[in-house]
Simulated assay, not measured.
Amino acid sequence: MTFTLFYDGSCPLCVAEMNQLRALNHAENLKFEDILAPDFKALFPDIDPTEASNILHGKLSDGTLLLGLDVTHKAWSLVGKKRWIGLLRLPVIRWFADKAYLFFARNRYKISFLFTGRSKCEPCQNGVCAIADTKPSDDER
């Protein structure tokens, strides 16, 4: 099974999470696609970059589209980490968690600045941050 994550390559927190997931993607179940890549629309005509900027998008190999925290939960489940995210998908908690996620998505550049001191990534290639090749720390294995 392949799960494709469509992320904002200009968001420092988004890129940091993709870096963590990529480092743990030993089974290569995850694919990472930056919605700001110059050829994104040509490669993924069925994914609207504006919508994917408003809410995280992910696509299963069978074409099923997941959104928001469902994407986050699926991605971390596939690498076998952060099982607690499953609690955010429980019926009563889900509504509140989804509202909190949408708040984060709308304000991710301001929140990134609070946590990283940067509201947007420095330009890498074609103005888009790349996912760094990183290895997981011992406590992430």
Rank of each mutant, 00 (worst) to 15 (best):
T134C: 07
R108M: 02
L65W: 09
P91T: 09
H57W: 04
G86I: 08
N126M: 13
K31R: 14
W95P: 08
F103R: 08
A105R: 02
A132V: 10
Q20Y: 15
R94C: 06
L78N: 09
I111T: 03
E33P: 10
A42M: 10
K59A: 06
K99A: 15
I111P: 10
D39T: 14
D48M: 02
I111M: 00
G63T: 10
L88G: 14
L67H: 14
F113L: 15
V79K: 05
F115I: 10
L114R: 05
P136W: 01
G117K: 05
K120S: 10
A27T: 08
K110R: 13
T64C: 05
P136K: 02
L36Q: 13
I93F: 11
C121W: 07
P38D: 08
V79Q: 03
R94Q: 11
N107R: 07
V71N: 00
D133G: 10
I111G: 06
C121T: 14
W76Q: 08
N29H: 13
W84Q: 00
L90F: 11
R118W: 09
K74S: 13
Y109I: 04
V15D: 08
D34E: 06
T72G: 09
G68D: 05
W76H: 10
H73P: 00
N126Y: 09
A100H: 08
K110V: 10
L24K: 02
F44Y: 15
G86K: 11
D39M: 02
E28H: 13
V92E: 07
G86A: 11
P45I: 07
L24A: 10
I47S: 06
R118E: 15
A52N: 04
Y109S: 01
D48C: 06
T50Y: 06
A100V: 14
G68C: 05
R89N: 13
A100P: 03
D34K: 10
A130W: 04
P38N: 09
L87Y: 15
L102A: 12
A132D: 14
V15E: 02
P49C: 07
P38K: 03
L88K: 03
L56A: 13
A100D: 03
I55L: 03
A75S: 12
I131P: 00
I111D: 05
L24G: 07
R22L: 07
K82M: 11
V92P: 11
K59Q: 14
T64P: 04
L21F: 07
K41P: 03
Y101L: 04
E17F: 08
S119M: 15
E28M: 03
H57T: 01
S77W: 00
H26S: 13
T134A: 15
N25W: 06
N107V: 11
L36G: 11
A105Q: 00
F104I: 01
R89L: 14
A16Y: 13
M18V: 13
V15P: 05
L60W: 12
H57F: 05
Y109M: 00
D48A: 02
G58L: 09
D48L: 00
H57C: 01
K135D: 12
K59G: 00
K59I: 09
F32H: 00
